[in-house]
Write a protein that binds this DNA or RNA. Structure first.
Length: 276
DNA sequence: CCATATGTTAAAAG
DNA sequence: ACTTTTAACATATG
């Protein structure tokens, strides 16, 4: 279930494997994933064109066609989306069952990794026979033409310290809700938020406007470090707090029992001793 | 059957 | 008018 690091991996995969290939066939028949488009609209707009650049802000991707001459293809992985290109995949991590099957397949791509038809929500087939699939069990991902990205704040991995302080350090909402608001800051999801707040040793329930400059700087650094590590290690689920929370329910640093509660509408874990 | 799920967003509430 | 919270979305998994 992808956050900024997983989406960046998907963007990089598209950049590496899907550019400069002519589009021959497009399946945009899932009217929920492709809403508000009618079936055939993406196909009509994209067929015959070539993908020429893959971009990202936060969790939103957009792919240029024909060097910017054609329409833009917007892609969002939602809660469970994965990009699959000729058997290579990025985005939603493999489930335990999928990993097992992939291993048993012995190096050959599991058919599901090539895009089980039941979960292939949007498909671009290239003239050379290969394909790009938006694979998404939950159908909360999106594929749209010319996506509107104006409501997104600056990317969480790129934002400057001054901009971060000005945008995050205000309002009465809980800090965690503030950093997960994609119009404030783009890319932080539920797990990245918990991991970064734990690293910065700041409570998720503090009103955002209450933080001082030092705390805001610490939080920005923690978000950047967590993002970098997650990209390197393969996903936000590799985070230290994330791996420990359900295992023993204790803080990996000090051993105190972790607190679990709803904050900003999502399940949140934190160390009540260290995170103030 | 029940609870949970890493995202977004319209609607309701304040 | 603006900010914050809640509920709904579609579906899978333990």
């Amino acid at each position: 279930m992808p956050e900024l690091p997983e989406v960046e991996a998907a963007r990089a995969l598209i950049e590496r494997a899907a550019l400069q290939r002519e589009i021959a066939v497009v399946d945009d028949g899932d009217t929920y994933v492709c809403r508000p488009h009618a079936p055939g609209e993406l196909a009509d707009a994209l067929t015959g064109r070539t993908l020429t650049a893959a971009n990202r802000i936060g969790k939103s991707m957009w792919v240029e066609t024909d060097e910017g001459e054609g329409p833009t293809l917007g892609l969002h992985l939602g809660m469970a989306g994965r990009i699959i290109i000729d058997g290579a995949h990025a985005g939603d991590p493999l489930s335990a069952a999928e990993s097992r099957e992939a291993e048993e397949a012995g190096g050959h791509p599991d058919p599901r990794l090539s895009g089980d038809p039941a979960w292939a929500r949007f498909t671009v087939e290239f003239a050379d026979g290969g394909r790009l699939v938006l694979f998404d069990k939950r159908r909360l991902g999106r594929a749209v033409l010319n996506p509107d990205l104006t409501h997104l704040g600056p990317d969480a991995a790129e934002i400057s310290a001054a901009d971060f302080r000005a945008r995050v350090g205000r309002g009465d909402a809980p800090l965690k809700a503030r950093i997960m608001d994609q119009s404030v800051l783009a890319g932080v999801g539920n797990l990245l938020a918990d991991e970064a707040l734990w690293r910065a040793e700041i409570s998720p329930v503090r009103p955002a406007g209450e933080l001082d400059d030092d705390e805001l700087n610490r939080l920005r650094r923690a978000i950047r470090a967590t993002t970098r590590d997650a990209i390197r290690l393969g996903g936000v689920h590799t985070g230290t707090l994330i791996e420990h929370r359900r295992r023993d329910g204790h803080c990996p640093r000090c051993g105190a029992p972790l607190v679990r509660a709803q904050v900003g509408g999502r399940t949140t874990w934190w160390c009540p001793e260290e995170q103030r």
